[in-house]
């Protein structure tokens, strides 16, 4: 790889001194670090970035102050363009999620795909829960799918953008089972939830943290988990595979991306900083409290993951009838 060849002479010296961290010690940020977030204050990504920053600061992992730069607009497009505009610098990072991959696939104006930047690390994967209203007739995902087969297009699911994981997953399940139901977009999470609890739609995919209180208060029932294994907080809920569906478990990811051409020393420094933060007790508490799964990866692993996941999502979206403008 290009990074490692640039890095090789320094690394050779460092290995000679039997101290790999010395290579990282070459880079120390000297200006405040900025983390770009593609959504407004208070959104899930914003809260995630601020939580990560507070863990980094609580453990004294950064010599400089870290601040969030909210760059909403056009899904991930504005934030991605912002990170890309900092090419070659070492004081800006961004929080990426699935839509950083899907937006450039379908939008000609989104010209900064994740693969053109420097993906640093995956940090968490978010499991999802498939939920129905508490008094819904569907006790299992199988019940719902049978009903959706019996009357194609009559049942509906509330969600956000058609590019979101919830719709991609719906496409996969429909292709696998031959069932057919509607995906109705609502711009905010509150409206999606209100549509389900008001009985206006039949199904939605929620985050475990959001579902917990609704289930406990008896307003909602969870019928399947979108995760590799059963969730500790919902031990009775079967995974998609256990529910008899042969569909890939599409992870909802949150990770950190650096601008294109960030110097290798800085990449190594930040990768190490994120690793230490994610190993801390506070971070592990945050992850388990919110029902997330820890998923730290190195820059090399992250790049490989992004490339593979981009191909997979492009294939599914294309099969769902969306026009893929570039891969």
């Amino acid at each position: 790889m290009k990074l490692s060849s640039l890095f090789a002479p320094a690394l050779a010296v460092a290995v000679g001194l039997a101290a790999i961290p010395a290579a990282q010690a070459q880079f120390v940020p000297n200006r405040p670090l900025e983390i770009a977030v593609h959504a407004g204050p208070g959104s899930g990504n914003d809260v995630f970035a601020r939580a990560l920053i507070s863990v980094i600061e609580a453990n004294n992992l950064s010599p400089v102050r870290i601040q969030v730069a909210n760059k909403p607009g056009g899904g991930s497009t504005t934030a991605a363009a912002y990170v890309a505009s900092k090419a070659g610098t070492s004081n800006t990072l961004g929080v990426f999620t699935n839509i950083w991959i899907t937006d450039p696939l379908v939008s000609a104006e989104a010209t900064n795909p994740l693969s053109s930047m420097t993906p640093l690390a995956l940090v968490i994967r978010e499991p999802g829960l498939i939920a129905v209203k508490a008094d819904s007739p569907y006790q299992t995902l199988g019940d719902f799918i049978e009903a959706a087969k019996a009357e194609p297009g009559k049942l509906s699911q509330s969600g956000g953008s058609v590019l979101a994981r919830e719709n991609v997953l719906r496409q996969l399940i429909m292709m696998e089972t031959g069932a057919d139901w509607q995906f109705i977009s609502f711009p905010s999470g509150g409206e999606r939830l209100a549509a389900l609890l008001g009985g206006h739609v039949d199904l939605m995919i929620v985050e475990p943290g959001e579902a917990a209180e609704q289930v406990r208060s008896g307003a909602m029932r969870v019928i399947a988990a979108v995760s590799e294994e059963r969730l500790p907080t919902f031990p009775d809920v079967p995974t998609l595979t256990e529910a008899g569906l042969n569909v890939p478990n599409l992870p909802q990811i949150r990770g950190i991306v650096a601008p294109p051409g960030m110097p290798a020393e800085a990449v190594a420094y930040y990768s190490d900083m994120i690793r230490q933060a994610t190993e801390s007790q506070q971070w592990q508490d945050y992850v388990s409290e919110n029902g997330f799964e820890a998923a730290f990866t190195t820059p090399e692993e992250t790049s490989a993951f992004v490339a593979e996941y981009t191909e997979q999502l492009a294939g599914i979206l294309e099969a769902a009838g969306l026009e893929i403008v570039k891969r």
């Binding site: 909403p72 607009g73 056009g74 899904g75 497009t77 504005t78 363009a81 379908v106 939008s107 000609a108 104006e109 989104a110 010209t111 956000g160 953008s161 058609v162 590019l163 977009s185 711009p187 969306l322």
Partner: peptide, 22 residues
């Protein structure tokens, strides 16, 4: 103006990424 939530198509953006968000 901007990306349509239902189809992920951009409307009246005239190729300007700044207009994607409406």
């Amino acid at each position: 103006v901007g990306i349509d939530l239902f189809t992920a198509q951009s409307r009246f953006t005239f190729g300007r990424p700044e207009l994607l968000g409406g």
